[in-house]
Amino acid sequence: MSFDIYAAFQRILNNEQISPPLAAILALTELIQHSDAGTMFELVKALNDGAEDLKKQASNPISLNAGCELFTAFVTLFPHDSANFTDLKKELIHQGQSYAAEALTYRNKIAELAFGFIKDGSILTHSYSRVVMQTLLLAHKRKRISVFVTEARPRGLGIKTAQALTAAGVPSTVILDSAVAYAMDKVDFVLVGSEAVVESGGLVNAVGSNQIAIIARAANKPFYALAESYKFHRLFPLSQYDLPSHNSKILSFPPPLLADRSLQLNTPFHASTPTDSSAPINNQPDLARPPIITQEQISQNNPNVDYTRPDLISLVFSDVGSLTPEGVSQYLVGMFAG
């Protein structure tokens, strides 16, 4: 089969309203359309292989993992009375597409649910989240709110959030990631989105979420997370380094520049070599001059997401209700038990 599932995934993601888990579900649905599998065993194997292809090519596989896991479990547990396997595949394709269409309404459900917890005052949010944006815009229509938005480096998506809020007339300002503790006294609560909500009840989100939650707990401010149920993920990390996105390149130390400097030090000095006032004395290299470190290098050496422990999270608002972290664990068990 020549179907390129990652190309399909990227094409679907071009729709601004589609998040990675939904894109993964729709890509797997297209895989069924192109599959020549003749049995359920062959189809499930093709779906698992397709999911692995997506994970290998994605820089951050966590959220799309949740979508792949959900759809594969659905296919495996799907009750059917189809006359033949071809009809079953058609039904699975229809169900996958219908679920994705319905899932686009989940953000509105979450916004309405979270709205009941929002009072007049100031909110701190982090990075960019579609469901958080929808919630804040709804709150702005009925409440008097102002929003502090972190820069959210290395991707800097907080600026996108602040621009969209400002364009909608919501009072907002961008703060440095390092200024969260400084701003926390002005904040009534924290509201963040999610890449995934894991089996422990913890949260995987844009890097910096964990330290914001720690500061909020120290300041006795509520920390709320918004998450569509298709982002619930059967993952149980015990630390940051258990996340699938972690690799040996993150927080690594670059090799010293001894080789280049050795070459420079061994370069013979010629009396006839022209000099100027800016050149080092005796044509020796300036060993005190630091190497140039670019923002791209910093970004590549740092994580995009981090893990926030469940004890730091006040509530998770989802399309299935407002859940405590313990409630998330119970819901996940039930969801994958069929």
Results as ranks from 00 to 15, higher is better:
residue 229 S to R: 00
residue 338 G to I: 00
residue 235 L to G: 03
residue 306 D to F: 10
residue 230 Y to F: 13
residue 284 Q to W: 04
residue 286 D to W: 06
residue 266 N to M: 14
residue 294 T to F: 02
residue 273 T to M: 07
residue 270 H to C: 06
residue 256 P to M: 06
residue 164 A to L: 07
residue 20 P to G: 04
residue 102 E to F: 04
residue 65 N to P: 01
residue 293 I to N: 00
residue 213 A to Y: 04
residue 73 A to P: 01
residue 87 D to H: 14
residue 330 Q to C: 01
residue 95 Q to T: 15
residue 68 C to I: 03
residue 157 L to E: 15
residue 40 M to R: 15
residue 75 V to F: 00
residue 29 T to E: 12
residue 57 Q to W: 04
residue 219 A to Q: 09
residue 129 S to D: 02
residue 193 G to H: 04
residue 112 E to L: 15
residue 263 L to E: 08
residue 43 L to S: 03
residue 222 P to A: 10
residue 207 V to I: 11
residue 108 N to M: 11
residue 117 F to A: 15
residue 137 L to Y: 02
residue 61 P to C: 05
residue 143 K to C: 10
residue 22 L to T: 11
residue 20 P to V: 07
residue 327 G to Y: 05
residue 251 L to P: 11
residue 262 S to Y: 15
residue 251 L to W: 11
residue 190 V to M: 09
residue 223 F to P: 13
residue 271 A to V: 14
residue 126 H to W: 08
residue 119 K to C: 01
residue 147 V to K: 01
residue 114 A to K: 08
residue 14 N to G: 14
residue 202 G to D: 09
residue 281 I to W: 14
residue 152 A to C: 08
residue 227 A to L: 08
residue 125 T to M: 05
residue 309 R to P: 15
residue 63 S to V: 09
residue 86 T to E: 15
residue 54 L to Q: 05
residue 184 M to Q: 06
residue 157 L to A: 11
residue 134 Q to R: 13
residue 33 Q to H: 05
residue 161 T to P: 07
residue 44 V to G: 08
residue 22 L to M: 03
residue 167 A to G: 04
